[in-house]
């Protein structure tokens, strides 16, 4: 079966033969992360592009070399994605097995391969931090017909509440693109804009001040709001650090075992390496960390 899709200056020819998929780039090729997203979602929505490459698709900034996806927590989706990665000769990096038993516990799985002179890293979670089950369900629903599924502005803003200072600048720009006033108020990183919005929408600020304490200071001076924003950023960074500390504690035995495991799987095809990884992880990586900080929902 040959199907050809034309899109402006480039054409991708997809040839399926005996369950092998061969992609031929006829003129220009799309980026590896778009290509992977299409392949992951062939026939069914299985993976939503997230984090840095989603920020690119929102036309915010080019800032990441790696690809991150939120994946469906079901065996078919995970096995399909793994088979795609296998065709790219992906190798496991240190991380959890790409298996719903661990993904369900909030773990992440990490792979790397080389393609077209690019080091490609692919990272997967099924339960991204700070996204409620209801928000996750809505995210899957809104992407069900998307050609390239990727996270929306508010989900991306939540995902960007990381340990990295630079991610808070991204949240600031994401907020400026949000259409709903409430969302701009909840995510703005600009003292000036918060002050202006506080004058225009005092009732909204009052409504959400418990959820975002910065809003209580928006009636003060610019300096008050800036200090409050700085305090908020520090608080979010520390909160994420506490969350990660729980996972790092739980992964101690796994990280001790990893060097020998990595040596064992170094030249194995991915699917075979995966079996070794799972066999070993069952001995030393809990499905779910037992000790997470109180503010880590799971």
């Amino acid at each position: 079966m040959l199907s050809v899709r034309n899109a402006d200056l480039w054409t991708i020819a997809l040839i399926q033969k005996e369950r092998c998929v061969i992609y031929i780039y006829l003129m220009h090729s799309e980026t590896i992360y778009l290509l992977l997203t299409r392949q992951f979602n062939q026939g069914k929505l299985r993976a939503i592009l997230s984090s840095g490459q989603a920020a690119v698709l929102h036309r915010i900034a080019m800032m990441s070399k790696d690809g991150d996806w939120i994946v469906r927590e079901d065996t078919e989706s995970i096995e399909f994605i793994k088979s795609v990665l296998g065709r790219f000769n992906a190798r496991y990096r240190f991380g959890a097995p790409f298996d719903e038993r661990w993904l369900r516990g909030g773990w992440s799985s990490h792979f790397e391969f080389y393609h077209d002179n690019l080091r490609v890293r692919t990272d997967f979670v099924s339960r991204p931090p700070r996204i409620s089950p209801e928000e996750l369900t809505a995210l899957w629903e809104e992407n069900k017909a998307a050609e390239i599924p990727f996270v929306n502005l508010t989900v991306l803003a939540e995902l960007k509440k990381t340990n990295r200072e630079k991610d808070y600048a991204i949240i600031g720009e994401l907020a400026r693109k949000m259409k709903k006033t409430e969302e701009r108020i909840l995510y703005s990183r600009s003292a000036r804009e918060l002050k202006e919005m506080a004058d225009c929408f005092p009732e909204v600020f009052k409504k959400f001040s418990a959820r975002r304490p910065v809003l209580s200071d928006a009636g003060g001076t610019l300096e008050d709001i800036e200090k409050s924003l700085d305090r908020e950023r520090r608080m979010l960074i520390h909160k994420n650090e506490r969350r990660l500390a729980g996972y790092m504690d739980a992964a101690k035995a796994w990280s001790d075992a990893w060097p020998d495991i990595e040596k064992q799987i170094a030249e194995m095809p991915l699917l075979k390496a995966h079996s070794i990884i799972v066999e070993n992880a069952l001995k030393s990586l809990p499905f779910k960390p037992t000790k997470l900080s109180d503010d880590t929902p799971l």
Partner: peptide, 22 residues
């Protein structure tokens, strides 16, 4: 860049070997 692992295992010689192999 993301996930719950903050770093792989620096300094372990096998990391260099795997990267070169890849």
């Amino acid at each position: 860049s993301h996930g719950v692992f903050t770093a792989s295992l620096p300094g372990h010689p096998i990391n260099s070997a795997v990267s070169a192999f890849n």
